[in-house]
Design a protein around this nucleic acid. Structure first.
Length: 759
RNA sequence: GGGCCCGUAGCCUAGCCUGGAUAGGGCGCCGGCCUGCGGAGCCGGAGAUCCGGGGUUCGAAUCCCCGCGGGCCCGCCA
């Protein structure tokens, strides 16, 4: 990608003008043609759209040339008018679709001949030249886009949704550009989180608790995971609290003794205050709650005692304890509040787990055993893991299918081949000169490796590469180890030439470490062609998400909320317009499709590298998807009525008939601003696809779609199409509508938005 | 402490890589247009210290430096 700069300019206007200007300018200014050509190629001089139609359609700032050629400002007008004269000469006018030119303040402004532009667009879109050009870009190169890859321990939430949508759109965009794309989901079933869920699930099974039918399977397992985790963490916290309390009591007593000893019966009011508070604290420690008030009082007294001997130290220690204590209590409360919610929703899970999980150490040991057993192929344990994670995955598939996402393949971390590669990675890495072997643990010191390899320094930039543990002391491997193995698998076994990993920005370092180690292991091609497609998180306003605590806004929920919002919103506007009768089933069906569109558009419309802040309560403000669908439907309606065919069902027929319409346009038409804008926009289409792929910015597609949509709304609000009396104008508008529809249709396909014919 | 990313109207966002004319949209707000290819629309209006300060340049939202604010990462977690 990126190597065909001029194919982006599908109409060729820019190229043509560039060539003409190189010729003309080198004749006017004392700069060699080669140098001017370089200025264009390096984009020091850019051919851009003008900010206002009164400046023409295309503007070229010639200032760099004028300054470089030492042309005094007083002579600009004279030189400018000669440039204008030359560029509007016969040959250029014809070749470059120029209709007129002007020189203003160092800018060369050019007016485009839109009838010629239309001719080119017809050729590109109706006769398939654009298609041919786009398909030739990828030339069948094999690309893997790995995305979503959520831990199978809770339902997909809105963050996973962003990943999934971005990944699926990007994959589809690459397909459109002629790449041979495989979308893959990496099932991370060997991590600690899964083992925690399995630990809980195993207990439930032993107590005959089975997944409930009335709850979607991944949501049920989400509760199992969260409750198991919460119970273990809570018990650990309680233990910490107890320990802290003991130390705290000891310290309190020490301080009390000391106070009595120093001040005895002196009757100093601060001392009495202090003793009172200390006694109160001692009594209170049996009750679990926070000591905010006491903390403030102690600080106060502490200040007054400041200069008195020996006490300051004690008091500040006490304050330290209280701070620590408050912190723990706060943490505990976040667990207990979700625990309570889950206990009400899933009593069958809660009752068993809260009874069975008492000793956190035992639980940790059990989890470690599960991890070990799974990695070393214990049959019963493996079956349990597979059974549970497969069920969760079924839940994922259902959610994803709903929003038009599916995969060429699911690659299990526990796959035999990947595990073989994992062992090989550990083995090979053990022999590296930068590797530290500590018992069974294998640790690669990338800091040291970076000293000797420039490649690694380049990967990390100013960051410290750090040490990477590939195998724990207990002999099990880590996520990063399997990730390295999976990367090898993608290239060697799946035959990828290039791999895009759509993975959150927060994993940037891990991804760099993977590449660095691949490089050290001798897989330089793999390291080079493994691309981290970063995207940022989704933040919910006013809510925080935590899978560990079972708090999340799921994709399933988002879908339901959209359906509701769309229907209610629609009813609102229709009622205002006086309609009174509606068909619920039809409405629901349409709303479901629009929900898909809105979800996909919402999650892909923002630059992936920006944090997406989202307010579930204000869904009605995120309805771009509905809006563009209406425009799309309207275009179809016009053509359906005019041609008497279902336009998108009979595209070949549509194209041939519109070609005839095009040839019937007379010479007498003048294009309006709205029409010219649309043609210009359509001209950009190919370039938008390519740059959006190059820079990994699927949001550019959505943006383009919105802009085209807005232009179309303005256009047919102002100009009748079928109702236009003048024949040539009517034909022209029909052609514009068709070209726009075909481009929108193409975009809907790339973005995988449901194709709706009528609403 | 080190690294990556972000900062543009009340809110969201484009433009930044590759400097160029009046910073483009959307939501919300105010005012108009409701029967004519499906009005989830159209037209008009108010609303911006482009986070701050320096520098480079004929020209800076854009490039460089120094700050400030926010997110994320620096685990024998994933």
């Amino acid at each position: 990608m990126g190597e065909l700069p001029y194919t982006r300019d599908i109409v060729g206007v820019k190229k043509c003008i560039t060539e003409a200007l190189i010729d003309i300018l080198s004749g006017e200014v004392d700069i060699s043609p080669e140098r001017i050509r370089r200025l264009f190629e390096e984009q020091r001089i850019k051919i851009t759209k003008t900010p206002d139609p009164k400046f023409g359609d295309i503007g070229i700032p010639l200032h760099p040339i004028l300054y470089m050629g030492h042309i005094d400002r007083s002579r600009w007008v004279e030189i400018g008018s000669r440039i204008v004269e030359k560029i509007t000469g016969r040959e250029h006018i014809d070749k470059c679709y120029i209709s007129r030119a002007e020189f203003v303040n160092g800018y060369l402004n050019i007016w485009i001949d839109y009838k010629r532009l239309l001719e080119k667009l017809v050729e590109n879109i109706l006769l398939g030249k654009l298609d041919e050009m786009l398909r030739s870009i990828g030339r069948g190169v094999k690309v893997i886009v790995e995305h979503t890859s959520a831990n199978p321990v809770h339902p997909l939430h809105i963050g996973s949704g962003r990943n999934a949508v971005i990944g699926s759109i990007y994959a589809n965009l690459l397909r459109r550009l002629g790449y041979d794309v495989s979308e893959r989901f990496y099932v991370d079933d060997m991590g600690r989180q899964v083992a925690i869920m399995i630990y809980g699930y195993k207990i439930l099974r032993e107590n005959n608790v089975k997944p409930r039918r009335d709850v979607k399977i991944d949501h049920w397992f989400g509760a199992v995971y969260a409750l198991t985790n919460i119970l273990i963490e809570k018990r650990k916290l309680l233990r910490k609290l107890n320990l802290l309390e003991e130390e705290f009591t000891a310290k309190l007593n020490e301080l009390k003794d000391r106070v009595r000893k120093i001040y005895g019966e002196s009757g100093d009011p601060h001392t009495i205050q202090l003793l009172t508070i200390l006694e109160n604290l001692e009594a209170k420690k049996e009750f679990i709650h926070r000591y905010d008030e006491e903390l403030a009082r102690l600080r106060n007294i502490f200040e007054k005692l400041h200069d008195k001997k020996g006490l300051a130290e004690y008091v500040s220690e006490i304050i330290g304890y209280i701070n620590k204590y408050n912190g723990l209590i706060k943490e505990l409360s976040t667990y207990t509040s979700s625990e309570n919610k889950l206990a009400i929703q899933f009593p069958e899970i809660y009752n068993v787990l809260s009874r069975e999980i008492k000793d956190p150490d035992r639980a940790e040991r059990g989890i470690d055993e599960l991890i070990h057993g799974y990695e070393y192929g214990d049959r019963d344990i493996s079956e349990l893991f597979r059974e549970a994670t497969s069920m969760v995955l079924e839940g994922f598939k259902e959610t994803l299918k709903n929003i038009n996402i599916w995969f060429e393949g699911y690659d299990w971390e526990s796959d035999r081949r990947i595990l073989e590669y994992t062992r090989m990675v550990v083995e090979k890495a053990s022999k590296l000169p930068y590797t530290i072997i500590d018992g069974r643990a294998v640790i690669v010191d990338l800091d040291k490796a970076a000293e000797e390899h420039e490649y690694i320094r380049l990967i990390f930039g100013g960051d410290k590469p750090g040490r990477v543990v590939l195998r724990r002391s207990d002999g099990t491997t880590l996520y990063v180890t399997r990730d390295i193995a999976y990367s090898i698998y993608k290239f060697l076994d799946l035959g990828a030439d290039k791999v895009y990993n759509v993975i959150a920005h927060e994993q940037d370092r891990e991804q760099k470490q993977v590449r660095a180690i691949l490089y050290l292991l001798g897989y330089r091609d793999i390291a080079e062609n493994l691309i981290h497609f970063q995207y940022e998180m989704v933040h919910l306003k006013g809510r925080s998400m935590s899978g560990r605590r079972g708090i999340y806004y799921t994709l399933d929920e988002l879908f339901r909320d959209y359906v509701k919002t769309i229907i209610l919103d629609y009813l609102d506007t229709q009622l205002r317009l006086g309609r009174r009768k509606f068909n619920y089933d039809e409405l629901r069906d349409t709303a479901s499709k629009l929900a898909v569109t809105n979800i996909r558009v919402l999650l892909s419309s923002i630059d992936p590298k920006k944090v997406l802040v989202f307010e579930p309560d204000k869904l009605r403000e995120y309805l771009y998807g509905s809006w563009i669908t209406y425009t799309f439907v309207r275009l179809q309606g016009i053509l359906r009525r005019y041609l008497g065919i279902e336009p998108l069902d009979e595209i070949v027929e549509l194209k041939t008939r519109i070609l005839n319409v095009y040839h019937s346009i007379g010479d007498d038409v003048e294009l309006s601003v709205e029409e010219r804008n649309i043609l210009e926009k359509l001209t950009d289409y190919g370039e938008v696809l390519i740059t959006s792929a190059d820079y990994m910015e699927p949001n550019k597609l959505v943006e383009y779609m919105n802009e085209l949509g807005m232009m179309l709304n303005r256009f047919y609000e102002k100009h009748p199409v079928i109702g236009e009396k003048r024949e040539s104008l009517r034909y022209l508008r029909i052609v514009i509508v068709t070209l726009s529809l075909l481009i929108l249709h193409d975009l809907f396909n790339i973005l995988k938005l449901p194709i709706i014919k009528k609403i």
